[in-house]
């Protein structure tokens, strides 16, 4: 009974944060509200029995996106975005209309039982225990392959802009240093666990990649990151290369793209996930601090 109130509370919080993000006159306030909205959203995912998404939303949606927004915010100097009263009025009218329409639509909606039963039924054939991993890396693996392609597009695109950003590394201090010494190894191990466990429990390549990129960012911010000459090209692309190779090899073997053969599906999936996680970590890291892209 009380749990229902938690749901309503979370829903109201997310609604308020949505409004303050979209209709505040100060950009920094909007960014803060947005990061807050991401955190509330990850609580909602946990409530809706979607732990995989809760981890990803907290790490990527709120974490990496928040870091990106804040890092960029300093470099732009348009502190205000005034709202004309007229558009506020339109906004309020639209809100009321949408609310009514939403309630009507949801009440008249016909729902189905979804694909849950089918996924459960075929899951043993996918050779993994976590149904989300099964969908991502077996049933709908082509989506995941092309999504790693999206990451590469973004990286090439950001690199092509040739930004001249001054390195933003903080001066190393005793606090940061000891934090790094504790947090980074922990994050590396935890990321590895999330990746390994992802086959059967919540977690997987995306969550692990996000956690590793966080560890990399900590190292970078404390000035402890050695310049890796291979960083620029090898790590961000190895995941896509592995996945594409898997697609071509499986096609050559079976005549069907990504129909795992020769080795158990689980083995294919582990190999793809490990390299994908490394690429995701490297790409997310490079997207937050694109200046490390400079100098070949």
């Amino acid at each position: 009974m009380t749990l229902v109130f938690i749901d309503y509370g979370l829903a109201v919080m997310l609604a308020v944060l949505t409004l303050t993000t979209l209709f505040s006159a100060q950009i920094d306030r909007a960014i803060m509200s947005f990061v807050g909205a991401g955190l509330v959203a990850s609580l909602i995912w946990a409530r809706l029995s979607a732990p995989d998404i809760a981890i990803a939303e907290a790490a990527i949606g709120a974490g990496v996106t928040g870091a990106l927004l804040l890092a960029t915010w300093h470099r732009l100097d348009k502190p205000e975005a005034p709202i004309e009263p007229a558009s506020l009025l339109v906004g309020i009218t639209v809100t009321v209309v949408i609310l009514v329409a939403a309630a009507l639509l949801v009440m008249t909606m016909t729902t189905t039982s979804g694909l849950g039963a089918l996924v459960q039924d075929k899951l043993p054939l996918s050779d993994v225990g976590n149904p989300v991993t099964g969908v991502l890396l077996n049933f709908r693996s082509f989506d995941t392959l092309m999504e790693i392609g999206v990451l590469l597009v973004t990286l090439v695109a950001v690199k092509s802009l040739n930004l001249n950003i001054a390195p933003a590394a903080a001066a190393p201090g005793p606090v940061l240093d000891s934090l790094v010494r504790v947090a980074v190894p922990l994050a590396v191990v935890f990321g590895g666990y999330v990746l390994w466990a992802g086959a059967d429990t919540p977690g997987g390549a995306f969550q692990a990649g996000a956690i590793w990129s966080g560890a990399g960012l900590l190292l970078y911010l404390s000035g402890n990151l050695p310049r890796l000459p291979l960083l620029h090209s090898f790590w961000p692309t190895i995941g896509l290369v592995t996945f594409t190779t898997a697609a071509l090899v499986t096609y050559a073997l079976t005549g069907v793209v990504l129909q795992y053969a020769l080795w158990p599906a689980g083995l294919w999936i582990v190999v793809i996930e490990v390299f994908a996680a490394l690429s995701i970590a490297a790409t997310l890291f490079l997207l937050v601090v694109p200046d490390t892209l400079e100098g070949k």
């Binding site: 709908r140 092309m146 392609g149 999206v150 597009v153 695109a157």
Partner: peptide, 30 residues
Amino acid sequence: GMSALFLANDLFNIYVMLEIIGLSAVALVA
């Protein structure tokens, strides 16, 4: 992305392709 878009018979897969095409198009303009 365009080849995969023309092949796709799946609404969500089409979304991923639209993003690949859109993001690379914007980067090309820049």
